[in-house]
């Protein structure tokens, strides 16, 4: 474990917590893409499938973190699609998730470390995570604005994988550890946040709200 991965995971936890708090406190999921949250839930389940296969006692924080990620993301989907369904902005959350899932699954079968079920599920989860935020960014571009709390969620979510890139640089340099698939997908994922990061740093940090030219 290094500082970058630690802060990456903390940033990821913060993102999940911020979103849950926003929906729970405002009792509304306006401005939140349910599709992105579904894709994240799929990512966690396919990536941590080993938790279900050979369940081992919760003997370390890693297992606990995996269970937190899976349960929090499923609970978030429950809030969006069931509890606060009336506030779900389905009209603007219109990016076709199939256009993300099918290519990720196809690519996972073509480019992977080992052609076995668990490895392909893990690779699928990595590729899917890289593009899972797109419906959320698409929704913001359609509505033309993002609530400040949603901007904080996106900033934490984007920072998590950006910090992982620093973690991979660190591990390459000190542990000569390289996972090309995770690195390439992580770089693509972080690049997708670039224009949002620019807006966040130039606006939200100064107390303004993000409003896109509609």
């Amino acid at each position: 474990m290094n500082i970058f991965r630690l802060f990456g995971d903390l940033s990821h936890l913060a993102a999940i917590a911020i979103l849950l708090l926003k929906i729970w406190k405002t009792r509304s999921c306006a401005g939140v893409s349910g599709k992105t949250q579904l894709l994240f839930a799929v990512c966690f389940i396919t990536r941590y499938i080993d938790l279900f296969l050979h369940f081992v006692s919760l003997y370390n924080t890693e297992k606990v973190m995996k269970l937190i990620y899976i349960s929090a993301s499923v609970f978030t989907c429950y809030l969006i699609f069931f509890k606060f369904k009336a506030t779900y902005d389905g009209n603007h959350d219109s990016m076709r998730a199939e256009f993300l899932i099918v290519p990720a699954a196809g690519l996972a079968c073509l480019i992977n470390t080992k052609f076995d079920a668990i490895e392909i599920l893990w690779t699928f989860s990595i590729y899917l995570e890289a593009v899972a935020i797109l419906p959320q960014l698409f929704l913001i571009s359609k509505t033309g604005e993002a609530e400040t709390i949603t901007s904080h969620y996106l900033f934490a979510q984007g920072s998590y994988r950006a910090l992982y890139i620093l973690n991979w640089i660190y591990r390459y340099h000190y542990e000569s550890h390289v996972d090309t698939i995770a690195i390439v997908a992580g770089v693509v994922q972080t690049i997708l946040y670039c224009d949002f990061f620019y807006l966040y740093i130039t606006k939200v940090v100064k107390g303004q709200k993000i409003v896109l030219p509609a």
Binding site: D9, E62, K114, D116, E119, N167, A182
Partner: peptide, 10 residues
Amino acid sequence: SSVAQNKDEL
């Protein structure tokens, strides 16, 4: 069967 290489990252 070969167990998937253990992934030590989340």
